[in-house]
Amino acid sequence: MMVAFWIAGGVAVAATGMVITRKNAMHALLYLVVSFLALAVVFYVLGAPLIAALEVIIYAGAIMVLFLFALMLLGLSTRHERQERAWMRPQGWVLPGLLTAVLLAELIYVMASGGPGAAPGAAPGPLEVKDVGMSLFGPYLLGVELASILLLAGLVAAHRLTREDPEDELQ
């Protein structure tokens, strides 16, 4: 199990690193898919097969397809690649990198010092999909409803924003 975790985690980190450094958007998205798939493995190893499946279906599947459609609609070309290169100058990385490194160090420090370490001796039993379902439609029912409203709002907003407005062209 540990081996799988290490490998999958390493792949996820590497793929994510590629995502944020690529100049070609299509390549970056493919790396993102790899990252998601690797994370799915991590989820599985952590004992959440349902989430692993959702990660593959929805993140790596639906959301990425949405990205790809968007890319196709935008029609990116080599011109944009050149532009990306111009935008990504090395000195632009210094400050964000530093900032994020400090944040990461802090997070690791907090986790290493404060939180409970390894799993307790009597590890709780594996979680069934049924448990998640019971929880989701039991105490979290309200949250589910809110999430559905959020998705509806997203749907309406996306529809409105992408509509062809004659008056828009005048601007």
Partner: peptide, 9 residues
């Protein structure tokens, strides 16, 4: 993020 860093610090 700077604010977050400061808070955690």
């Amino acid at each position: 993020s700077f604010g977050v860093i400061a808070f955690i610090a």
